[in-house]
C-alpha cells in the first residue's frame, strides 16, 4: 500500500512535469496572442515522434549513449523552429482580428490536419524508443527501483523551465516587452513595440515547449495516434484549473492533476482519465475562472 502510494507519487511527479511543459506553452501563447491553440497537443505529439525517430537514428551510431539526451532537445528545437513560425505566419497572423469562434475553428482545423500528418509519416503502429531512459539508468528509492530519467531529469527540466521563464519575463528586456504586449497591445504598439514579432517569438517558443514536452515523454511510453488529443485536453484542464494565462498557477495545477491521475492509475485504473477533469470541474465550480484567474482575463 505505502509502496504503491510512493510509486504513485513518483509517477505523478514525472507526469506532472511533462504536462506542465505542454500546459505552460499553451498558457503563455494564450496570454500573449489571446488564441487558444487546439493544435498545441499536436506539437507535443510531433515533438515526441521526431525525438523517437532521431533517437533511433542516434542509437545506431557509435556515440549512442552520449547522444540519447541531446537528441531530445534537438527534436524540440527542430519542431518548434520549423512548425512554430510556419503556423504563426501562414495561419494565425490572418485570424488575430477575427472572433474567438473562428480562431478556435482555425486551430481545430490545423489540429485535424496535423493528426493525420503524424499518421502519414509515422504510421499507426506503436513506436517506442527509450535510449534516453536507459542512458541515465535506474535508481533505488526505498524498495522501489525507479528510473533516474523520471525521478530527476523530468522534474528538473520542468522546474528549470518554470524558474527560467519567470526570470525571463520579469528580468529581461524581451520578457518585459512580452508582458507589456500581454497587458495592453495597443499601448505597447504605440510605444514602438513590434507586436507582430512578439507574437512570432512567443508562438515559436510555446511550440518548442510543447515539442520538448513530447520529446521528453517519448522515452517513457509508446507513441500511438491520439497522444496529441489526450495531451491538449489534459493541458487545457491544467491551464483552465489554474486560470488562463497563469504560469506559476499552471505548475501548481499540473502537480495537482498529475498526482491525482497517477494515484488513480494505481488505485482506480478505470477512472485514470476521469480524475483530472473531476479536479478541474470541482475547482471551476468554486472558482469559475480557475484558482488564480480573474474574470477580466477571461473576458478579453
Amino acid at each position: 500500500m505505502t509502496l504503491l502510494l510512493l510509486l504513485a507519487v513518483l509517477d505523478g511527479l514525472a507526469y506532472a512535469a511533462l504536462v506542465f511543459m505542454v500546459a505552460v506553452g499553451l498558457t503563455l501563447v494564450f496570454g500573449v496572442l489571446r488564441v487558444l491553440n487546439v493544435a498545441h497537443g499536436s506539437f507535443f505529439a510531433i515533438g515526441a515522434y521526431v525525438a523517437a525517430t532521431l533517437g533511433t537514428a542516434a542509437a545506431a551510431t557509435a556515440a549512442a549513449p552520449v547522444l540519447a539526451l541531446p537528441v531530445l532537445l534537438i527534436a524540440a528545437i527542430l519542431v518548434g523552429g520549423v512548425l512554430g513560425p510556419l503556423v504563426e505566419k501562414l495561419l494565425l497572423s490572418r485570424i488575430y482580428v477575427k472572433d474567438h469562434v473562428l480562431q478556435l475553428l482555425v486551430t481545430f482545423a490545423l489540429f485535424m490536419i496535423l493528426e493525420d500528418v503524424q499518421k502519414l509519416i509515422w504510421g499507426v503502429q506503436p513506436i517506442f524508443q527509450d535510449a534516453a531512459v536507459k542512458a541515465l539508468g535506474p535508481v533505488e528509492v526505498g524498495d522501489i527501483v525507479y528510473t533516474r530519467y523520471q525521478l530527476f531529469l523530468l522534474p528538473g527540466v520542468a522546474a528549470t523551465t518554470l524558474v527560467g521563464l519567470m526570470w525571463f519575463l520579469r528580468r529581461t528586456l524581451t520578457g518585459r516587452v512580452i508582458v507589456a504586449v500581454t497587458q495592453d497591445r495597443e499601448a505597447a504598439t504605440a510605444m514602438g513595440i513590434d507586436a507582430q514579432r512578439v507574437y512570432l517569438l512567443t508562438f515559436t517558443f510555446g511550440t518548442m515547449l510543447a515539442a520538448l514536452g513530447g520529446a521528453l515523454a517519448s522515452p517513457t511510453s509508446s507513441l500511438v495516434p491520439g497522444v496529441g488529443v489526450n495531451m491538449i485536453v489534459l493541458s487545457f484542464a491544467v491551464v483552465a484549473t489554474a486560470g488562463l494565462g497563469q504560469i506559476e498557477g499552471a505548475a501548481l495545477t499540473a502537480l495537482l492533476i498529475g498526482l491525482g491521475r497517477s494515484v488513480a492509475v494505481y488505485f482506480a485504473p478505470e477512472f485514470e482519465v476521469v480524475i483530472p477533469y473531476i479536479i478541474m470541474v470541482l475547482v471551476l465550480l468554486v472558482r469559475p475562472y480557475g484558482i488564480f484567474g480573474s474574470p477580466e482575463l477571461r473576458r478579453v
Binding site: A109, I113, L120
Partner: peptide
C-alpha cells in the same frame, strides 16, 4: 489515413 487532414484543409478553406 488522410481523411481528417482533408476535412481540416476544407474547414480552413471555408473559414
Amino acid at each position: 489515413d488522410a481523411w481528417q487532414m482533408i476535412l481540416g484543409a476544407v474547414l480552413l478553406g471555408i473559414i
